[in-house]
Write a protein that binds this DNA or RNA. Structure first.
Lengths: 234, 234
DNA sequence: CGACGTGTTGAAGGAGCTCAATCTAAGTGG
DNA sequence: CCACTTAGATTGAGCTCCTTCAACACGTCG
């Protein structure tokens, strides 16, 4: 909050960044949901990632200079817009923060890789179940929801655009998941009735999210050793 | 070369990193080709990215602490292995290098995003044509090849694993591309007979690669301004 | 109340898959 | 230098998962 920033509330469907934009500010999602997407030549849309409160949605664009994809809100959202230069200065002044932000973008990249595998090599049912697991676990880990109830902001068409399917097929697969009592849905929420089976159905393994876990303690130690080295240098 | 490192020559098919490994060193590809991949529950493999001489193939893993995917050589390669801590120290001492490496991983992430769109929303023919364009352009830009002849280290099965297709279907699509005189292939090379048409066939737009271009001068200026800010802080 | 966004359903078709056989070229050992 | 092996490329036939197109249902909101 000490950084210069501007708070803003956006309606669902607003564009935060458009492909090709020169990125002069960086957007942090304070509440609500947003997603990144690209539009291919045929006009079809591919959703690249989904973002929840707390996510930095376009640090990538800020650092690369111009946006290579769109960022759009999925629900009404509250965002903080931070000038690009403020982020750069912050990173220059506090190497440990730079490191933390770097790691944040690396986790983001890890999620992208999992999505490549998800879309490239899994069945429609697996892809959709996997998406449910990911979003639920991330919300839970961010302290936004509690097992087994989660916010589900996506339309079936958006699920299709995220998984490389059509909305019609998504509808049929969802019926299957409901019939098998893995999930139950309302307008804008999901209940994961059976976590174990849903994970199994989605071939889901949380490790790619790099969330804190029993192994967290060791990673923490690593980071500390890095700060130490940094301190040595000055 | 001033960093501590160990040079090594690896046969085709060697694993550089395995999923789950604790990453204590970072691998730079000096020559040859390598690829990242994941294996999903069904046993199918998805290739996540392809790497050429000069690429840093597992900076991500080094910084995240443990590998979330495999890295394997595609041809005989020469690599330099650098201790993880040496990279961290280097970053702590020279913020501008840290920034450059960060940007390198961001470009990597941008390529992953394009792959998501490629696999999720393009036809088999588009996906494969797109892959040809990407690899050719990256080789050219790295000064490894000259238009219109490129090294092509991939088997048809690997092309399938990269594009989410089967090798049988890749074979048929390749026949189509050859018949349309977009490419011609030998054992381990491609000639792109018609760049314009291949780009068109692959719905390819180079911007996601963030290569130097007419707009490069301006980006350079941005980086310099960042260094200035960094200098100010000390 | 009508319009619109979203979810649901049916029927038909096709892009890409599976399985299995065959072909080719480049080793490899004797 | 040749028989043998093997990895990869090629081909055919049948099938299926998912798409396409089109209609309809339902709730919300101005």
């Amino acid at each position: 909050m000490a950084l210069p920033h501007r708070l803003s509330v956006l309606d669902a469907g607003s564009y935060i960044v458009r492909e090709g934009d020169r990125a002069d500010r960086c957007c942090v999602l304070l509440g609500g949901f947003a997603y990144r997407h690209k539009v291919v030549g045929s006009g079809a849309r591919q959703i690249l990632s989904i973002h929840i409160g707390g996510d930095i949605v376009d640090l990538q664009n800020s650092l690369l200079g111009h946006a290579d994809h769109n960022v759009q809100t999925m629900t009404r959202t509250e965002v903080a817009l931070i000038p690009r230069q403020a982020i750069l200065d912050l990173c220059a002044r506090y190497p440990a923060i730079a490191h933390a932000l770097w790691v944040d973008t690396l986790v983001d990249a890890s999620i992208s890789r999992e999505w490549i595998a998800n879309i490239g090599r899994r069945t429609a049912r697996q892809r959709i179940a996997h998406l449910f697991c990911e979003l639920a676990l991330r919300q839970e880990s961010a302290g936004l929801c509690e097992r087994p109830h989660y916010t589900w902001p996506m339309t079936q068409e958006q699920v299709g655009d995220a998984t490389g399917l059509t909305s019609v097929h998504v509808n049929r697969v969802l019926q299957g998941l409901r019939a098998d009592r893995l999930i139950s849905t309302t307008k804008s929420s999901v209940t994961i009735t059976n976590w174990d089976d849903l994970q199994e159905a989605g071939d889901f393994n949380r490790s790619y999210l790099h969330l804190p876990s029993p192994r967290g303690a060791r990673e923490m130690a690593d980071h500390r050793s890095w700060e130490f080295s940094a301190a040595k240098s000055y």
